[in-house]
Design a protein around this nucleic acid. Structure first.
Lengths: 152, 152
DNA sequence: TTTATATAATTGATATATCAACTATTTTTA
DNA sequence: TAAAAATAGTTGATATATCAATTATATAAA
């Protein structure tokens, strides 16, 4: 049976694009904030906007599983970006609080991230972005809802 | 300074799409071939088509760095999918050869991968795929060629 | 209200990602 | 041709990804 080389597929294009963007964005972020990563930035930004988020909810927002999120938050606590404390309303969860160091970083991050986004989207108009989103969502929904193939 | 939540950006859409596809594809592959991953499949397919590829070249094709590729190929050798041998034309490189086990797997993979691709792209026409590729390439090239932001 | 089920988070095992430092070669160039 | 630079690959350190098993707590069902 014939198959296209992976490098010719749309999936290859999608994957290489997001990797290139992440590399670009990380370089600009860590130039200003050496111990900060993209995903850790995202966690800080989400927590700033929605302080009540649980680890599980944050994990979903940044497409990680719970185990990864536990470890990521461990390192963020070690690096003094977050404080974990007991949530007496539901003792299975934790309260996650931003530290002063996090608040400082949250002052510097938005301009960097906005410039990253603008630079990587330069020459692309809103309609194109809209189209892109529609098609990507269709692919995503196909992947989510398609039956898995029978083991033949 | 204001910033859109990461979950509203096109980058979030790109990333979540490729992750959903990888999850879907992996499930279908490992249902038939338990110890096989997507990236290992890609390596086998590339090597089948281009047997002379070096580790470095394969790494580029699947967007990994050399260190990751070294370790990935180590595990593929341990799992008896590949054989590494000395290349006397250039002793810095290795020759990578597919084993009989790899050839067997290469019989089963293409129909699975073709079905994965077709299922995840159902309802999307060629013109849309073409548009998608164009825009993604533009983003990628913006990320590659933009000057990094000055540390201000 | 006890038992069963569900949920949030952690841990262990294994694979992968990434950077920087390193070894062994090969190629360039002075 | 000898020294310098480039190339292919490895290794160590650290972070992250993923699955399955586990703990602690909360909610639902009998």
């Amino acid at each position: 049976m014939n198959i296209s080389l992976p490098s010719e597929t749309i999936f290859h294009a999608i994957e290489s694009t997001i990797k290139e963007y992440r590399k670009f964005a990380l370089k600009n972020i860590s130039a200003s904030i050496p111990d900060m990563t993209i995903d850790q930035s995202m966690v800080l930004i989400f927590l700033k906007e929605h302080p009540e988020l649980t680890q599980k909810e944050i994990a979903e927002l940044v497409f990680k599983d719970n185990a990864s999120m536990t470890r990521m938050i461990n390192t963020m606590v070690e690096k003094k970006y977050l404080k974990r404390s007991i949530n007496n309303d539901d003792r299975r969860r934790f309260k996650l609080a931003l530290t002063a160091k996090a608040e400082e970083v949250l002052e510097k991050l938005p301009p960097i991230i906005n410039r990253n986004r603008a630079a990587s989207l330069s020459g692309i108009n809103k309609e194109e972005i809209h189209q892109l989103k529609l098609i990507l969502n269709k692919i995503k929904s196909n992947c989510k809802h398609h039956e898995y193939i029978e083991n033949s």
